[in-house]
């Protein structure tokens, strides 16, 4: 026993029509995208520059302008040009200059695994005292109310007024590793006093600074004189 099911037989659309429609849509959409890209390009670039400047100025208070540099694996320092990708093994850093064009400090990025995700931060290095003079967070997903105290805890931020990152005599590594210690047990200028209850995030900050400084500073310090004044 079978019932007759009416099957709707539709006419197949000719390929030409499909290609024509898809072509038309792609053309219209392409125009819209190009238009949007062109008209927002300057504003986006401006925004990115302002955001970067704001972040760098926060960690180096005396800074008035910044220049982006690369340290090549061989140790040569060169100015970064354009938005091209960095060469393999090259480290990026920002040199900040005060209003007379004198080097006010160096800012570089570091990152380490925190409680929830990696904590990315920007730190300011002062060549005069060979110490870290400020830290700002670029991105993190730490628990609100616990891990994100690293942004506001006054006692913790005091660690970064002058965190010692002197190099050893051979200029091959830091003289003393930056270490995060238990709350209330800081005795040396290269130690970070952790926030009680937010130890994991505090440690991540210490590790991020240590890893980045260990890699960057031994290459940067010998060539520091070349970038003393604004190029």
């Amino acid at each position: 026993m079978s019932t007759e099911i009416p099957v709707s037989v539709s006419k197949t659309t000719p390929t030409v029509a499909m290609v024509r429609t898809l072509g038309l849509v792609s053309a219209v959409c392409g125009l819209i995208i190009v238009g949007a890209y062109q008209s927002t390009f300057d504003a986006v670039a401006d925004n990115k520059r302002i955001a970067l400047e704001r972040a760098v100025f926060k960690v180096i208070p005396a800074a008035k302008s910044i220049v982006e540099f690369l340290v090549l694996p061989g140790g040569a320092i060169e100015k970064k040009v354009g938005a091209s990708d960095t060469a393999v093994g090259a480290l990026k850093f920002y040199a900040a200059y005060d209003d007379t064009g004198k080097l006010a400090g160096i800012a570089a990025e570091g990152s380490a695994k925190g409680y929830a995700d990696s904590v990315r931060l920007l730190y300011g290095y002062s060549p005069d005292c060979q110490c870290i003079v400020g830290v700002g967070v670029v991105s993190m997903r730490e628990t609100p109310g616990i891990g994100d105290k690293i942004l506001v805890d006054k006692a913790y931020l005091k660690n970064f007024v002058a965190l010692d990152v002197k190099l050893n005599a051979e200029l091959s590594a830091l003289a003393n590793e930056v270490k995060t210690v238990k709350h209330g047990t800081k005795t040396n200028p290269w130690q970070i006093d952790a926030i009680a209850g937010a130890t994991i995030t505090s440690r991540a900050v210490g590790r991020a600074i240590n890893d980045s400084a260990q890699a960057l500073l031994p290459k940067l310090v010998p060539g520091l004189d070349k970038i003393r004044s604004k190029p």
């Binding site: 659309t13 499909m18 429609t21 898809l22 038309l24 849509v25 995208i33 927002t40 986006v44 925004n47």
Partner: peptide, 30 residues
């Protein structure tokens, strides 16, 4: 002018276009 065989592709291309526009616009705003 949209044949039903390719309608989903057309919709997705159109939607993706405007999402791209919004993406640029938000970057430009903040």
């Amino acid at each position: 002018v949209t044949p039903k065989e390719v309608r989903i592709a057309v919709y997705i291309v159109i939607i993706a276009t405007f999402v791209t526009v919004v993406d640029y616009a938000i970057q430009a705003i903040s």
